[in-house]
Nucleic acid binder design. Structure first.
Lengths: 158, 158
DNA sequence: TATTGTTATACTCTATAACTATA
DNA sequence: TATAGTTATAGAGTATAACAATA
């Protein structure tokens, strides 16, 4: 495809699937943040809380696994701890490390946030049929799988 | 879907199509920025240049159409003008306004950038079949169409 | 010496408010 | 009074460097 007239330039740019995927990603993130806002969480807070719930040992491990910078992880966990969703404890086996435990309140909010995201997902995918949703999911996963670990691209994050 | 065990929390979050669409959007933007980098452009520069090429009158109009703030538009056009891709002229009919014209150099870089984005698109969509690509494009457009102009969501941008 | 968590600092991106010139 | 463009400033978000405690 190439530009045939000046006025086509905008339509050509905006019509690209890549451009629309960028837009859709931003909309999806905004919807997720909106759904999490009643719980005082952002997508990144939820990402950190989920890592803690998964039992990833040490803040470094959480940072490495998620692509979130370790100094940013400190701030996220500060927020979560202030709200009572996680607790930090020195690891007796290696006193440099912190074990991050999810509190009962943290588990409860994780559960509620998960349901809120389910509703967001339904709103995002709209009236796509079940087979369309599966096809979309497969294609997205296929593209991500091919592009993951390619140099110069951002790591998984939220 | 609900959490059945702590260790599932992460897989459940990461497995959501919404989450993956956020990831894919970021990857697509990073790929586009990478492809444009040899021309000294970012996605937003290209968006501004494209608006100028489409003959949108006045910087305000360009800002309104794209959702880019008008003060940000000033900086983008400063960059483009410094590189010789656009020229600003007072509108004789309303001397408050600037007419933004794309120079020959600007048209040339727009053309080259467009081809670079075509290659990026091919890389992004990978080995999806033609019918898969069309189906993906339709589904993405359908979702965006339903969500556009919904309160609280970001405007089209780059 | 290297690593973990932390803090301080700087940098990027963007929005808000105030200014000017025109209408 | 309102609008177009501009500038100055401030705010979020993030990364880099340096530090104390521990290995």
């Amino acid at each position: 495809m190439s530009i045939t007239s000046p006025a086509d330039a905008e339509a050509e740019l905006l019509g690209r699937t890549g451009f629309r995927l960028v837009e859709l990603g931003k909309v999806a993130l905004a919807m997720a943040d909106g759904a999490l806002e009643p719980y005082g969480l952002t997508g990144r807070h939820l990402r950190a809380l989920t890592l803690a719930a998964s039992g990833v040992p040490s803040q470094q491990g959480m940072a490495a696994r998620s692509g979130i910078d370790r100094t940013t992880m400190v701030a996220l966990l500060d927020d979560l701890e202030r709200r009572g969703f996680v607790r930090r404890r020195r690891d007796p086996a290696d006193r440099r490390r912190h074990l991050v435990e999810v509190t009962d309140e943290g588990k409860a909010v994780l559960h509620k946030a998960s349901h809120a995201l389910d509703r967001t997902e339904a709103e995002l995918l709209g009236e796509l049929s079940g087979s369309d949703r599966r096809h979309l999911g497969r294609m997205v996963e296929h593209m991500l799988g091919r592009l993951r670990d390619r140099p110069g691209l951002p790591p998984i994050d939220c």
